[in-house]
C-alpha cells in the first residue's frame, strides 16, 4: 500500500493532468515471476489505484520499477519498458517524456545481477562442493537466483543477502539430491556397498529407559594424525552426502559453511528447537556412520595382516608345518 501510494504520487503527483498517460510497471509476483502491467490511465485515476492497491494488498506482488510516460503510443511505451529492462539504472531522468522511478533503488533484475556479481563466488563454491559437477552447480545457481527473484518481497533485512541466498541454494541442492535418491531407488534396490549412511545409523541406540544400548566405540586413531584426519574427512564427506537431504543441508550450513545457528534458522526457516533436533540427529547418524566405516577399515587391515604371514611363508605356499 505504501509503495502504491508512492508510485501514485511519483507518477501523478508531478503531473496530475496526465490524460491518457501510460504506466508501465514491472511487478514481481510471488509465484508468477516478473510481470509487466500495461495500464491505460484515464481519469479518474482512483480506479487504477484501487486495482493496484488490491494487488499489493494481497501480497501477490511488489512494484519493482515504474515508468511514467506521458501521452505516448502503446509501442513506444513498450520500447521504453524494454530499454528500461536492459539498463534499469541508467534510465534517462532528464528525458522529456519519460521519468524512471525505481522502488528500493533497484529493479529485481538489477538486484539479481548484483547477487550474481557479489555472491556468485560463494554460491559457486557452495554448489560445487555439494554437487561436484560444474553443470549441476551452474543450474543450481541459476535456479537459486530465479527463486530469489520470485521471493524478493519476502526477503527480510533481518538476515544478510548471502545467508538468504545460501538458504535458497541449500533447498535447491536438497531438491536435487532428493531427485537423485528417488531415481536411484527406482533403478536399483540393494546395491549398498557399506559406504555412507546405513539405516542402522539413523536408529536410536538407546534402550527404553534412555540408557545406551549400543554405546559408542572409541575411534582407534592409529598412525599419522594428518593421514587419519584426511581419511576421516573423506569418510565424513561420504556420510554427509548420504544423509537425508534435510539433515545434510543443515549440516552443510551449520558445520561446514560455519553459519551461526540463528542464520541457519533464518535461511532454512526453522525454529531453534528444530535446528537442534536436526543437528542432533545428523551428528548421531554421522558419528555412527563413521564408526562403522572405521570398524570396516580396521577389519580389512586385520584381515590383511592375518593374510600376510601366510604369503611370506614362501613361494608356492610351502610353509613349515
Amino acid at each position: 500500500m505504501e509503495l502504491c501510494s508512492r508510485v501514485s504520487s511519483l507518477c501523478f503527483g508531478r503531473s496530475s493532468s496526465l490524460g491518457g498517460a501510460r504506466v508501465v510497471a514491472l511487478a514481481v509476483a510471488r509465484r508468477a515471476a516478473v510481470r509487466r502491467t500495461d495500464v491505460q490511465v484515464d481519469p479518474p485515476h482512483d480506479a487504477l489505484f484501487g486495482m493496484r492497491s488490491r494487488r499489493l494488498a494481497t501480497g501477490r506482488g511488489t512494484i519493482a520499477h515504474v515508468e511514467c510516460v506521458s501521452s505516448v503510443p502503446v509501442t513506444d511505451a513498450d520500447d521504453q519498458a524494454d530499454s528500461l529492462q536492459q539498463s534499469p539504472r541508467s534510465a534517462p531522468s532528464s528525458a522529456p517524456r519519460s521519468t524512471a522511478v525505481s522502488a528500493g533503488d533497484l529493479t529485481i533484475v538489477a538486484a539479481a545481477e548484483r547477487w550474481v556479481r557479489e555472491h556468485g563466488d560463494v554460491l559457486w563454491r557452495f554448489a560445487m562442493a555439494r554437487a561436484r559437477s560444474k553443470e549441476i552447480a551452474e543450474e543450481i545457481i541459476q535456479e537459486t537466483i530465479v527463486a530469489a527473484m520470485l521471493a524478493f518481497d519476502r526477503f527480510s533485512a533481518a538476515s544478510s543477502e548471502q545467508t538468504w541466498l545460501l538458504g535458497i541454494a541449500s533447498h535447491k541442492i536438497a531438491d536435487h539430491f532428493r531427485q537423485l535418491q528417488r531415481t536411484a531407488r527406482r533403478g536399483e534396490s540393494s546395491t549398498h556397498d557399506g559406504a555412507g549412511i546405513d539405516a542402522s545409523d539413523m536408529q536410536d541406540r538407546f534402550d527404553k529407559r534412555g540408557k545406551w544400548a549400543n554405546p559408542p566405540q572409541k575411534w582407534d586413531m592409529r598412525g599419522d594424525g594428518a593421514a587419519e584426519n584426511a581419511e576421516m574427512s573423506a569418510a565424513l564427506r561420504t556420510c554427509v552426502d548420504a544423509l537425508p537431504p534435510s539433515l545434510a543441508e543443515t549440516v552443510w550450513l551449520r558445520d561446514i559453511v560455519g553459519m551461526p545457528a540463528e542464520d541457519v534458522c533464518k535461511a532454512l526457516d526453522l525454529t531453534a528447537t528444530n535446528l537442534w533436533t536436526r543437528m542432533h540427529r545428523a551428528r548421531s547418524a554421522l558419528r555412527a556412520c563413521i564408526e562403522r566405516t572405521i570398524g570396516m577399515r580396521h577389519e580389512e587391515v586385520s584381515k590383511l595382516k592375518a593374510a600376510q604371514p601366510a604369503r611370506s611363508v614362501g613361494p608356492g605356499g610351502q610353509g613349515s608345518p
Binding site: 559408542p216 575411534w219 584426519n229 576421516m232 574427512s233 565424513l236 564427506r237 554427509v240 549440516v251 558445520d255 561446514i256 559453511v257 560455519g258 551428528r283 554421522l286 558419528r287 563413521i290 564408526e291
Partner: peptide
C-alpha cells in the same frame, strides 16, 4: 569427544 571432532573436521572442510 566424537561429535566435537566431527564438527572440527567439517569446519576444516569448509
Amino acid at each position: 569427544k566424537q561429535i566435537r571432532l566431527l564438527r572440527d573436521l567439517a569446519g576444516s572442510a569448509g
